[in-house]
Design a protein around this nucleic acid. Sequence first.
DNA 1: ATACGATTTTTTTTT
DNA 2: AAAATCGTAT
Length: 694
Amino acid sequence: MNKFEKELNPEQYSVVTSSAGSALVLAGAGSGKTRTIAYRVAYLIEKGVSPSAILLLTFTNKAAKEMVERITSLLGDSIRLPWSGTFHSVACKILRRYARNIGYDNNFTILDSGDSVDLVKLCIKAQGVDTKNKRFPSAKVVLSIISFARNACAPIVDVLEKKHVRWVDFEGDISAIAIRYHERKRAAGVMDFDDLLVYFYRLLHDSPELCAVLSKQFHYVIVDEYQDTNTLQAGILRLCSSFHNNILVVGDDAQSIYSFRAADIANILDFEKTYPEAKVFRLETNYRSTPNILDVANCVLEQNTNQYKKTLRSVQDRATNPEVHVFADGKEESDFVAYQIKDLLAEGIKPNDIAVLFRAAFHSQALEMVLMRLGIPYEYRGGVRFFDRAHIKDVLAFLRIINNPKDEMAWTRVLLMQVGIGPVTIQKILQHLQIGDGAITEESLLSVPSILSAKAKIGWNDFVMIYTAVIAADVTEPQQMIGRLLDSKFSEYLESEYIDYRDRLQDIDHLAVFSAEHKDLAAFLSELALQEQFVQKQSLGQGRVLPEEKIILSTVHQAKGLEWHTVFVIHMSEGQFPNERASFEAKGMEEERRLFYVAVTRAKKQLFFTYPVTTHRHMALGKQSVFLEELDRALVETYGFSGSSCFLDTYDSDDSSLCFTDPSDEVDDIEYIPEGEPFGNTSNKGRRNLLSNF
DNA sequence: ATACGATTTTTTTTT
DNA sequence: AAAATCGTAT
């Protein structure tokens, strides 16, 4: 018996050792998907396949890293690694080499989402649409429409009809804005996230020769999280595997949760139609969770219709049922979770075996405060990306104008920092500098003041001082540049702009440390843009806390692919989870339910659902999530209020009435409480103003 | 006309 | 926490 047979179950083994050709692996949650892929790669390499002939596409950089670690632990770290990474990062790597083919310089910069929104804003203005008197979608919405259209390979009008009927009348303007946006990106030598995929696709599609070269190189294509690919990515895959036709996709249709990014569940559901010779494998043995948790998970899935039929089998013994806990408000909910965590830690459970999951990033705020107070270290995943934080972007903007002087967005950011210089002046300056030409001459820099007002001159001079310090001839590496920046007047700007200036300076130091690994500016910048790493909000003041000593707070999306001994899913109330907006969309509810399924299947041993009956934003909100209602009551233990100030009749959730019997200090900010008015079972619409906010 | 500060509103999920 | 909005100062 070889090592593969010994270390894999028969389901996994047949995938790992399968012959060439197209294959679909339907891998249920917790069925050892990552393991299977890693062994597959190891198997191929041991069979003599060159690592560079394998293309391994994952959904996040984190997953890619994990995969590489697994492979090296199987084969030793002397082995060369396969091509691996996210679609975007692989596309970026290839585009750096072939940018000229599609009319770009190979030092192109990658716009992050914030920059993209800003640029769209400018395009809306340039388009001259009347946004004052008419209601027009915000730049963010316009960008999401454009982006969706490109990822779904659909015309804008289709996207409007399907997802934004409200704005369908503006199709003309939006399409025109899309064109402006496109042209402006080209002029600035920048690409947004979607461009990476679109141009990668074009590169392959428009040049049969190059397509042949690359698809010959990629002898084996392996794709993780296939249920979350969109039409554009599916097209890329088809081309990448067109020569050898060895494409193996792994996914779980029940975990498709990225349709807002144009992920199309049809890709996995119709895989057998697209690749008629495809073999289909199923991984249905779940090693992760107790039967009690899987019962709940299966119960969730039963409510959905559009899916492959599957049954997860647990290998574990029966244990305790998941618990549902109801609270008066967010504060009580947070207290419960925090103290429960404290108990678990006291029992000897490791912090990194505990996670708190939620639908939206801001759901964690109340809990964070309690954890902070109790001194429980945590790591937060979700919300603003580290590299999207204002001060980090400030620093990067300087590096960007040096890397690519055509980068209009970076110039704007850099100049906006100075006093006396606003959007209008910036346009004037950029025109004067002729940034479109791609090089900044000293004369043009020196002649700028002649077109400025007295106040703007002061700001401009400050900018020039910083700029010349960073661009000095002896400075070539990113780390040196950041160092120069911190020694310049830039520090003064930081201090005046941000109240938490010290913390932010520390962030920049971290950035500098990180940058030390990179000598090449363009590569450094694009790596940052494609990193999904998050801010680690500090959890405890004193000392260093190791990653193993922190519990995890995470959005459900971020939690995909991970697992913990104990999982709390908080804010399981109506309007929060499922998200109110998503439930209006076609198929939105099914996707939210899959998201809930993802949350449930993260837990290994113990699972808690909690929800407050009231929230800070609108106090008169009383219902539990429909997802909890749908659950078979026999599968969970339900607990009512633990607080003293409120009482909830949990007998029948459909008719639950809530009354404040003894308003204590916790609720005395409430101005008006409708006496005896039951509002547990009414929608919160039209009731928002009954009670004031905190 | 432009810049800027105070105030209010608003958060789905992410490469 | 960041963006959008609005009024005021230059």
